[in-house]
Amino acid sequence: MADRISLEARSRNMAAIRGKNTKPELTVRRGLHAIGYRFRLHRRDLPGSPDIVFPSRRIAIEVRGCFFHRHGCANSALPKSRTDWWLKKLDGNVARDLRNEAALLALGWRLLVIWECDVRQDAEAVLRRAADILGPVRA
């Protein structure tokens, strides 16, 4: 019975995790907007529906969660239960990310990947790096 309760709690917890508008993504969006950049969100016509898109610059930004995209930092540790299932799931996410990145590059886009742990550690440094790649703010 206790195992069933823990599985149900895990299921509720995982169902509550969002794929869009996460805290790290919102932090990056707010920071870029405050600097003066204007952008589009989740363009479904682009491979992978990147989180932040600068169409005129042909630059896309993905803010990736360390766990679900297997960053390799301390936040991406594999759960101790159902390890085989999680490995298959997370490896599939990484393979999908690589396919989407290759497709974006083939379309002439550049992709900046921002990791959740980097945003949490030093959001200002992440924004400076993004601004360096994006170039000057346009009026």
Rank of each mutant, 00 (worst) to 15 (best):
A103D: 15
R18M: 13
W109Q: 11
P50D: 07
G31M: 05
H33R: 10
S49P: 07
H71Y: 01
A15L: 14
A77Y: 02
L107C: 02
E25Q: 02
P50W: 00
A130L: 15
R96Y: 03
V113S: 05
A74W: 13
I133A: 14
S81A: 14
F54E: 01
C66L: 08
S11A: 13
A125Q: 14
K23F: 03
L26Y: 06
R40W: 08
S11I: 02
I35G: 03
E124T: 10
R57T: 04
L46S: 12
R99Y: 05
P47D: 13
L107Q: 13
F39N: 00
V53M: 02
N13S: 14
C117Q: 11
A2S: 10
A9I: 02
R44N: 12
L7M: 07
R96V: 07
H71L: 06
R29E: 08
L46Y: 01
Q121G: 05
R44E: 12
S6T: 15
C73E: 03
A125P: 07
L112I: 12
I35M: 04
A77W: 06
A103T: 11
D122I: 11
A103I: 07
A9Y: 09
R82I: 02
R4Q: 12
H69Y: 15
A74H: 08
E25F: 00
A60Y: 03
R58Y: 01
P79Q: 01
V28P: 01
R120F: 14
R58F: 09
L41H: 13
I61L: 14
P79F: 04
R120H: 14
S81N: 09
T83A: 14
R43V: 11
R4I: 12
F39P: 01
L105E: 10
G92Q: 01
L26P: 00
L32V: 03
F67N: 10
V28W: 00
R38P: 13
R40M: 11
E101F: 04
A9F: 07
V113Q: 06
K20L: 10
G31W: 05
I17Y: 05
R44T: 10
S11G: 13
A102N: 09
